[in-house]
Computed example of a mutant assay.
Amino acid sequence: MNKRLLWFAITPALLFTGIAVAQQYPMMDMVADKLVQRYQQSSCEQLWQERAQKQGRPKSEREQQAVQLLHDDPQMRAAFISKVAAPIANKMFECGMLP
Rank of each mutant, 00 (worst) to 15 (best):
Q41R: 13
D73F: 03
H71E: 05
V84K: 01
L98D: 08
E63H: 05
A13I: 15
F80T: 00
N90H: 03
R51H: 06
A22L: 14
Q24P: 02
K59F: 07
A9H: 11
F80L: 00
I88V: 07
Q41L: 13
R62W: 08
L5H: 09
M97G: 03
Q46M: 12
R51F: 10
F8P: 02
V67A: 03
Q46F: 08
E45S: 09
P12N: 10
L70D: 01
H71I: 05
G18I: 04
M76D: 02
S43Q: 06
D73T: 02
L5S: 07
L6D: 14
L69E: 08
S60N: 07
Q46P: 11
A66Q: 02
Q24R: 12
A78G: 03
K54N: 14
R57K: 15
L70H: 01
M1Y: 15
A85G: 05
F8T: 06
Q64V: 15
A52R: 15
N2T: 15
D33W: 05
K83S: 01
L69H: 06
Q23C: 10
A52C: 13
Y25L: 13
H71C: 04
P58W: 04
L69K: 07
Q24L: 09
M27W: 03
M27D: 13
K54Y: 12
L15Y: 07
G18R: 08
R57I: 15
Y39R: 12
E50G: 11
Q24M: 10
E94L: 05
C95H: 02
P99I: 09
I10N: 13
T17A: 11
S60C: 08
P99C: 08
P26A: 12
